[in-house]
Design a protein around this nucleic acid. Structure first.
Length: 549
RNA sequence: GGCCCCGUGGUCAAGCGGUUAAGACAUCGCCCUUUCACGGCGGAGACAUGGGUUCGAUUCCCGUCGGGGUCACCA
């Protein structure tokens, strides 16, 4: 009896690997094309780090006319979550990331290198596991979890390196006969890789991001097929990325230390290894310590958070690109109106260590992004956001014509306003422009300098009676406020007032503050001329009447 | 603890043997003929630390300290 018999005893049905090698041939792509993938587990919400990785992978594939695959790694059924795949697909879509191949729903995929869900590839893994067993490069292991735990305890007590390797790899030397007998007796087993490595030897690895890294060789006989017949991550990674003809593995740097194992697996399987790029995670400052953005503790770890806050996807993408390649900022300044698709991302320029997530900067990017939107775009985005997250704002925006006027204030010129960073800012920003909201609320009227009721009312009355004309252009409007100030004994110019403060009660700026506050209830607003244009005469008069009481 | 990676202003970061050590966000001041925002100009603010190597180290080497990752029938 030999390894072949053993292999047949374990996987009697498995196909020859040549079947799969032929079914998934080398891809016919242009020189330098990058085939890469995002390979999440459907264990709940999509992490911002996952979006970051996909964004990078998607761009790289685009730039090289390659392929971007969405592969679902669902080999741990315990951790699976309902609608996990749908959530991933939709999250990526919401940020404009569209895979060329991969899963498109819980059960369906697109592309010729599928299935793209690991639980659907069970027999493929088994074929390759069988292939390894036939060659004596893998073997069944009958150790129980309890035995393994016991072994680990011994190793720890003796302060030696834990794991299943060398003399500790008990099942490694079981004879074929014995193994087959145990199998026939119904003993439970899993399949382990027989590592040819030695811990005292080093391997050299060049990572596209991390650079040259030396590791001890792997000598652990890791599990490749679990008790449920599904592969472990490591084995699935080797088989899938070989069969999907992945050229570049872009993944989180928590995988860096597995590289020796993975390289060994590729080698023993007879596969050409892909290039690796290990991305540093996005971190958060937690009491002076850096730590990865955590699903449990940090709401901003979930991509859904950005939807809820109404941070535009363009802002999130730009911010992420900014972390990925710091020269993005310079490029953006030089190419203000170009799409981020035109920016050429370079993997080898990515930072080796993790960046702290900076919400303030993200919001700044958001302001800039939104400032470039047209009033129509602002309206559509805000309205769509409101439909899901803010009923009151949704109602306000029903009158599209009026909303468009508001969003048009100081927009579309060379120096557009930057006061909206996210859609959830909108309500607070425009609320006072609605008579029903503004007039139904008790206002504070912080008039600043000119505070006497009598003075205030005099300004408001005189302005309406004598000066206000809704057909005035901005210059006329401006001049009239000066006239108003002059007539009531205020300085017509601020400089004049500053030069001779005792001659006047206050200056034109203070007068216009009175108008502004009476009109809006606040001291800080966008351009008052435009506000008055939008409000219209009727509303202005109503507001003044209320303010005078 | 073993192994691996990293350490430039508050944050993201250029620079990689000789620089007045870029830039962005944040912060402060001034200007933008009346607010605020935008914009412009300017200010403050950094090479973790100790040893080497060198004519010269932020850049190279070693140690220390600090941070991160990883050591599962999880990915």
């Amino acid at each position: 009896m030999d390894y072949k018999d053993l292999a047949n005893a374990i996987f009697p049905e498995a196909k020859e690997i040549t079947y799969y090698e032929e079914k998934y041939p080398e891809r016919n792509l242009k020189e330098g094309a990058i085939v890469t993938r995002f390979a999440p587990s459907p264990t709940g919400f999509v992490h911002i780090g996952g979006l970051y990785q996909s964004l990078i992978a998607r761009k790289l594939a685009n730039q090289t006319e390659g392929v971007f695959i969405l592969r679902i790694e669902d080999t741990d059924q315990k951790r699976e979550v309902e609608n996990g795949i749908t959530d991933i697909v939709q999250s990526l879509d919401r940020f404009g990331i569209d895979p060329d191949e991969g899963m498109i729903s819980e059960t369906e995929g697109k592309g010729n290198y599928g299935p793209y869900k690991q639980s659907m590839r069970k027999e493929i893994y088994q074929s390759y596991a069988k292939y390894l067993i036939e060659q004596g490069k893998a073997y069944p292991c009958f150790c129980t979890p309890e035995e393994l735990e016991e072994m680990r305890a011994k190793q720890e007590a003796a302060k030696i390196r834990p794991g299943y390797y060398g003399v500790w790899a008990k099942c490694r030397n079981i004879t074929v006969e014995e193994a087959i007998e145990k199998i026939n007796n119904g003993e439970k087993y899993i399949v382990r890789f027989k590592s040819p490595g030695r811990e005292d030897r080093k391997i050299k690895h060049h990572d596209i991001i991390k650079g040259n890294v030396d590791f001890p060789e792997n000598d652990q006989d890791i599990v490749i097929i679990k008790a449920d017949g599904l592969p472990t991550y490591h084995f699935a990674h080797a088989v899938d990325d070989h069969l999907m003809r992945t050229t570049h593995v872009i993944r989180g740097d928590e995988w860096l230390s597995s590289v020796p194992l993975h390289l060994q697996l590729f080698h023993e399987l007879g596969f050409k290894a892909p290039k690796y790029a290990h991305i540093a995670p996005i971190m958060k400052n937690d009491n002076g310590n850096k730590r990865k953005l955590s699903k449990r503790k940090d709401p901003e770890a979930a991509v859904s958070y950005y939807d809820e806050m109404g941070i535009p996807k363009e802002a999130v993408n730009e911010y992420l690109l900014n972390i990925a390649n710091s020269n993005f900022e310079n490029w953006r300044r030089a190419n203000k109106d170009k799409s981020i698709d035109e920016f050429e991302l370079q993997l080898n320029k990515m930072s080796v260590s993790g960046a702290l997530f900076d919400m303030v900067k993200l919001l700044d990017v958001g302001k800039t992004v939104i400032s470039k939107f047209t009033a129509e775009e602002v309206y559509e985005n805000a309205f769509n956001w409101a439909k899901v997250y803010d009923k009151e704002l949704e109602d306000m925006l029903q009158d599209k014509k009026y909303a468009l006027k508001i969003f048009g204030i100081e927009r579309g010129n060379k120096k557009p306003r930057k006061d909206i960073a996210k859609w959830s800012d909108v309500k607070e920003n425009i609320e006072y422009m609605y008579d029903d909201k503004f007039l139904s609320k008790e206002q504070e009227y912080p008039y600043q300098v000119i505070n006497e009721k009598e003075d205030v009312n005099k300004i408001l009355d005189l302005y309406i009676e004598k000066y206000y004309d809704e057909n005035d252009d901005k210059q006329q409007w401006f001049d009239k406020i000066k006239e108003l100030a002059g007539e009531l004994g205020y300085a017509k110019e601020v400089k004049e007032y500053k030069a001779n403060p005792d001659a006047y009660k206050a200056h034109v700026g203070d007068v216009s503050t009175v108008l502004r506050v009476a009109l809006t209830g606040r001291t800080n607003t966008p351009d008052m001329y435009e506000i008055m244009q939008v409000l219209g005469k009727e509303s202005i008069e109503k507001r003044f009447e209320v303010a005078k009481k």
